[in-house]
Design a binder for these strands. Structure first.
Length: 317
DNA sequence: AATCCAGTCAACCGCATAGCC
DNA sequence: CGGCTATGCGGTTGACTGGAT
């Protein structure tokens, strides 16, 4: 038995939206909001459309502050660096680019950016670095509260600014989402005191951030000496100035909280050196090239992170 | 002028998952 | 706790457009 259709397919219009339909949808949502129910919305709004279709139209086209047109160099860099880190998680990438939609970015990547990168990689560079199968995802916390210690940050690329979508660590009673930002590579000069100042111990930070789960292997490195944790920590992560914490696995965020995607952990090489990594265009091109030869993406429904970054590090000054 | 072809992008489809009952 | 439904996401499709022949 198949799945029940989300709408009556015989009674819904498909294809491009007319200006009249756009106007109806826009007007309805501006007046009444979505009501938290997209399925019922088209009927209420007098549209012969599937709720999904309405949602997509609103999110990708009608919603206020949508940015259309050329992507800037900065946006290119953000897309590239994030793609290198997390792969085709377009919604996450889009969340870092105000006004851009996941669809927009996906299309841009597939039609232009990828070609742009691949096109300029016809000749591999002479010193091709050994390919890292599991690049660090430089998921960092940037604190933005004026009352708390302000970290500095490094971007993957010079000129790439801070990324803008907030994340939170609710289990630690850390400040609300707007106080933390996902950043490309942040150096936190006072992370221990910052955490303790919010009632969080270092261990709590560790436990929350890695969301240890059975079968997961988490590697925390302290300088070059990592203290690994699999099915229970062998030693506590060492917080302190000048220490570098590294972790395997993919971290994203979901509904404002950090999400550890343990599905990817089995792909990790846990013993590789935890050197700080920054991406440059050349590296992304290399990753891209490797992805086109079949190494990339096998996670979840659509592929994965095999070729790309699934590690992260926090650098403490 | 007609046809072909490649590029672009809006929209669709199906799957995963969160949330509700 | 399991089933069901709505939502969100990413891959894919297909209509449209503009340039080349």
């Amino acid at each position: 038995m198949g799945r029940a259709p989300c709408c009556d397919k015989n009674n819904v219009k498909k294809g491009p939206w007319s200006p009249e339909e756009d106007a109806k949808l826009k007007e309805f949502i501006e007046k009444h909001g979505t009501g938290g129910n997209w399925i019922a919305l088209p009927q209420k709004a007098g549209l012969r459309r599937c709720g999904k279709s309405c949602r997509l139209r609103w999110l990708n086209y009608l919603r206020p502050n949508i940015k259309h047109g050329e992507f800037t160099e900065h946006e290119d860099r953000v897309i590239c660096s994030m793609y290198a880190s997390i792969g085709s998680r377009w919604s996450i990438i889009a969340s870092q680019l105000p006004g851009r939609t996941d669809n927009d970015i996906k299309n841009y990547w597939n039609t232009k950016l990828k070609k742009k990168l691949l096109g300029s990689t016809a000749t591999p560079p002479p010193h091709r670095a050994p390919r890292h199968h599991h690049r660090p995802l430089n998921l960092m916390l940037q604190h933005t509260s004026p009352s708390l210690p302000q970290p500095t940050y490094n971007s993957f690329f010079s000129g790439a600014g801070a990324l803008h979508n907030p994340i939170s660590i609710p289990a630690l009673n850390l400040p609300p989402p707007q106080d933390y930002m996902l950043n490309s590579s942040v150096v936190m000069p006072n992370a221990p005191s910052l955490l303790q100042g919010h009632g969080a111990t270092q261990q709590q930070f560790h436990q929350h951030v890695v969301k240890e789960e059975s079968g997961s292997m988490i590697v925390f490195g302290s300088d070059q000496q990592s203290c690994s944790s699999s099915d229970g920590a062998h030693s506590q992560p060492q917080f302190g100035h000048g220490k570098e914490l590294s972790f395997d696995g993919y971290f994203g965020y979901n509904n404002g909280s950090i999400e550890h995607d343990h599905r990817l952990l089995q792909l990790q090489d846990h013993h590789q050196a935890q050197a700080p990594v920054e991406y440059n265009y050349e590296e992304i091109k290399q990753l891209l090239m490797s992805s086109t030869t079949g190494n990339l993406h096998g996670h979840g429904q659509d592929g994965g992170m095999e070729g790309f970054g699934s590690q992260g590090k926090v650098t403490m000054m």
